[in-house]
Design a protein around this nucleic acid. Sequence first.
DNA 1: TTGGGTGCAAATTGTTTGCAATTGT
DNA 2: ACAATTGCAAACAATTTGCACCCAA
Lengths: 134, 134
Amino acid sequence: MNTNKEIRSAGLKVTHARKSILNLLEKSNNSHLSADDINKILFKKNDEVGIATIYRVLNQFVDAGICIKHHFDSGQAVFELTPEGHHDHMVCVKTGKVIEFEDDLIEARQHSLAKKSGYKIVDHSLVLYVEPID
Amino acid sequence: MNTNKEIRSAGLKVTHARKSILNLLEKSNNSHLSADDINKILFKKNDEVGIATIYRVLNQFVDAGICIKHHFDSGQAVFELTPEGHHDHMVCVKTGKVIEFEDDLIEARQHSLAKKSGYKIVDHSLVLYVEPID
DNA sequence: TTGGGTGCAAATTGTTTGCAATTGT
DNA sequence: ACAATTGCAAACAATTTGCACCCAA
């Protein structure tokens, strides 16, 4: 298994909880899961992991660069595997669907705008809240 | 006073709490205040308003379109008066400073990207997390 | 006068932490 | 064996809500 290596190379022990969570994230590629989503899914699979552990593992994964955390506009943080190329998100306000996209032109523009103000970009978050056309 | 009219036309009674909060937001144009910030500032002015009321009033203002709420990447929501022209934000990760900016090119690009996926934009949020160059 | 508005304290929600028991290496 | 990891419950932080009292219209 590849996941084991990914966990190990983050300097973490390969435990049941971490494997389950990483697997879930990999299978749900494209979903953006909250700690609670993960809890519920694992529960259904009879593979429950304490919610505290879920939070701990997710934060460790974020620290290790394995996944990233978004805040969107709800009170809840959601997580996804770190995408290779940077991408942004469209969230459909009707269906909750999340579409990922990428646009070099926007990226480039952001850097030039930051530079103009004397800053460099460490990170950024672009979310389009959208609804279907008709 | 103009603020009174703004409150009234939102269908809300013109109360002390609402006037104080709206005034603060207007004076602090450019700041992005959390409920707690507002609480602290009013407290210093000996014009304290219960924190529960602050949250209630801010949410009413958001519903009425008087102000908007951002989530940035902290656990805390921040509020600002609804800006006339849409603008985006740079948040300095060193100092916490918030810089507002606007870029028609990015805006236009966003619309064309959404349309390409069969959506129209209802709202969007673009935040650049930046740090000073050296 | 009277229904909306307020403050307080208690309840919720999302997340973190202390600690004893457990597990990976 | 030993340090890292887990689960539980308690602690926290941000926000919301129930309710008795109060105030703007």
